[in-house]
Design a binder for these strands. Structure first.
Length: 329
DNA sequence: ACGCCTACCTGCTTGC
DNA sequence: TGCAAGCAGGTAGGCG
């Protein structure tokens, strides 16, 4: 199997999710997509011979941690894909291992002889001598191992937070598998019309909604702020007040920032420095996120930071006007 | 059903 | 310099 040359030079760097310097990965859809594509290239076909768990809580349902290693040993990774912000490792026997990276999770392919990583919470030994390491400084991430046959949600529709998942005779709370994810924004089925229809039924603030995974899958704090800036929409504006043009802009720019993120290997809005040491053309791309008090690239006005739903939110108060509440009819 | 709040975690930054 | 508080944010789950 081809091994990228930079693996040899930088053992800990498997993808852009390993960052030299400050580790602020914040994996959102483009970052997770990048990880899945890299793993598909590097470990599809590999067989797991053992798993070492150093933080039990990383392993979640349905297997208790002490059975996980035995369950996964001997499995061959057939295919690696992504759903929302979760990496899916499809095993040859039909089971699926899910890896939710949350805040600081990373999947790293380590060549034999690579120094131990103190933040590796789960290490999968591969038959060929390499290791697939799940690294997670803050321990928020979760790994699950699910039965084959395909998990399906019981009852379709949005707001699936409390619904259950059926697999054969057993059912799981949907949160144990997926958090009732909304549509994948980059799929063809996610049309402006469908988006408009979903938005029209909601009275929540735009920022809150974009972060709601049951409303739209894969958008996190960075891409939400960036998409709203491009669409010139105020983060506090409520969804049901958007007109048709607003919706089309928001739809287009959500997809645009996510696609650009993937093209840039998920690095477009992080302070990533590539293995080639290429300096940040990324700073140019970052329009508002963490640019508090700095000039707006469009109008020069100072970027403002507010807190929405306990999350920092960055926007340009001149480009992104909050609509005046209409008290009249 | 929806929106809001807290807990989960650790490392870095800030303030005294 | 040392220490504590504040901050970062994805998401499960509880509450009103």
């Amino acid at each position: 199997m081809h091994v990228p040359h930079n693996l040899e030079e930088e053992p800990f760097v498997h993808s852009n999710l390993s960052i030299s310097g400050t580790l602020t990965t914040m994996p959102e859809l483009p970052e997770v997509e990048t990880v899945a594509r890299d793993l598909q290239r590097w470990v599809a076909g590999a067989t797991i011979t053992d798993a070492t768990i150093s933080w039990d809580r990383t392993i979640r349902h349905p297997q208790p941690p002490d059975r996980f290693a035995a369950e996964i040993s001997g499995a061959t990774i057939a295919r690696v894909t992504r759903r929302a912000k979760t990496v899916l490792l499809h095993l040859a026997d039909g089971r699926v291992m899910t890896v939710a990276l949350r805040m600081t999770g990373a999947l790293i392919v380590a060549e034999p002889g690579t120094p131990e990583d103190p933040y590796a919470r789960v290490v999968f030994a591969l038959e060929d001598g390499r290791e697939l390491r799940y690294r997670d400084v803050r321990k928020f991430g979760r790994i699950g191992l699910w039965p084959g046959g395909g998990l399906r949600s019981v009852g379709a529709g949005s707001g699936a937070r409390s619904k259950r998942i059926a697999e054969g005779a057993r059912t799981y709370r949907i949160g144990e598998v997926f958090s009732g994810h909304g549509p994948e924004p980059l799929l063809r089925g996610f049309t402006a019309e469908r988006f408009a229809e979903r938005l029209s039924r909601r009275t929540a603030k735009l920022k809150t909604l974009l972060l709601d995974q049951s409303f739209i899958a894969g958008v996190g704090n960075i891409y939400a702020d960036e998409a709203l800036w491009r669409a010139r929409l105020h983060p506090l504006q409520t969804a049901d007040t958007l007109d048709a043009r607003d919706v089309r802009r928001l739809h287009r720019f959500i997809r645009q920032v996510l696609r650009e993120g993937i093209v840039n290997r998920g690095a477009s809005f992080s302070d990533y420095v590539g293995a080639d040491g290429e300096p940040g053309a990324n700073a140019e791309r970052l329009a508002v996120y963490r640019r508090t008090e700095q000039p707006c690239h469009r109008c020069g006005n100072r970027i403002e930071r507010i807190v929405v739903g306990q999350r920092s939110t960055h926007f340009c108060p001149r480009c992104q006007r909050e609509p005046v509440a209409s008290s009249a009819t």
